[in-house]
Amino acid sequence: MKALAGYLAGLLFGLGLAISGMTDPARVIDFLDVAGDWDPTLMFVLGGAVVTTFIGYRLVWRRQAPLFESRFQLPTRHDFDARLLGGAALFGVGWGLSGYCPGPAVASFVGLSAPLMAMLVAMVVGWWLARVVSR
């Protein structure tokens, strides 16, 4: 059941990305172009996600435990370090340059193009480098 719930959540997320147009990197690039042809679509998608998350967390925290686990697993670290800030900066730069973040990139895999392939390769290399550096 846990794997099925994860699959359904991923499917719902991917459908949401596709329906909202967030698999189109031009939407992200146009959102960042505040001095030109600005497209506010991403702001509304993110706003919808924040509202949904706000409501969802209020409902989940009423439970004693998650549906498919014995307890909630919450992060224990609360500090900011160079690795966290550097990773966030790299993520933002990559997203701004390519127009893709990992979710929409994977959801867009069906329409594979050269820029998408370059982004996916860079993402995998980044994951590999992060593992090598963190050892």
Rank of each mutant, 00 (worst) to 15 (best):
W127P: 01
D79N: 08
A82F: 00
W128H: 07
R135G: 11
W38A: 02
G86E: 04
V132P: 04
L8E: 12
G6W: 09
G56D: 08
S134R: 13
H78M: 02
L90V: 14
V121D: 06
T52L: 02
R83C: 02
L42Q: 09
D39G: 07
D39N: 15
A118I: 14
L120M: 11
F54I: 01
S70A: 15
R62G: 15
L12Y: 03
V50A: 06
I19K: 03
L112C: 13
L42F: 15
G21W: 10
F54G: 01
F44C: 02
V60G: 08
L11C: 12
L97R: 13
M1F: 13
L74Q: 06
F13G: 04
G16A: 02
F13L: 13
P102S: 02
I29D: 10
S108M: 06
G111M: 05
L8N: 10
A118C: 10
G56I: 04
R71G: 03
A82D: 02
V125A: 13
L120W: 04
S98F: 04
G96F: 06
G94I: 05
P25V: 05
L59Y: 15
G92F: 13
L129C: 08
L12N: 02
A107I: 04
V121S: 07
G103Y: 11
T23E: 04
T76L: 07
L116M: 03
S20W: 05
G6L: 14
G48A: 01
W127I: 08
Q73D: 13
L12E: 02
D39E: 14
L116Y: 01
L11I: 12
G96V: 08
A105S: 11
Q64V: 11
W95C: 03
G16V: 01
V125H: 05
T52S: 00
G94E: 06
L17I: 08
S113E: 11
W61D: 12
M119Y: 15
V93R: 05
Y57W: 15
G126V: 10
G21M: 10
A5Y: 07
V106S: 08
A105F: 10
M117V: 03
W128P: 00
R27V: 13
G16E: 01
L8C: 13
W127Y: 07
F54H: 00
P115H: 01
F13E: 09
L42V: 15
A9L: 14
D79Y: 02
L46E: 10
G56E: 06
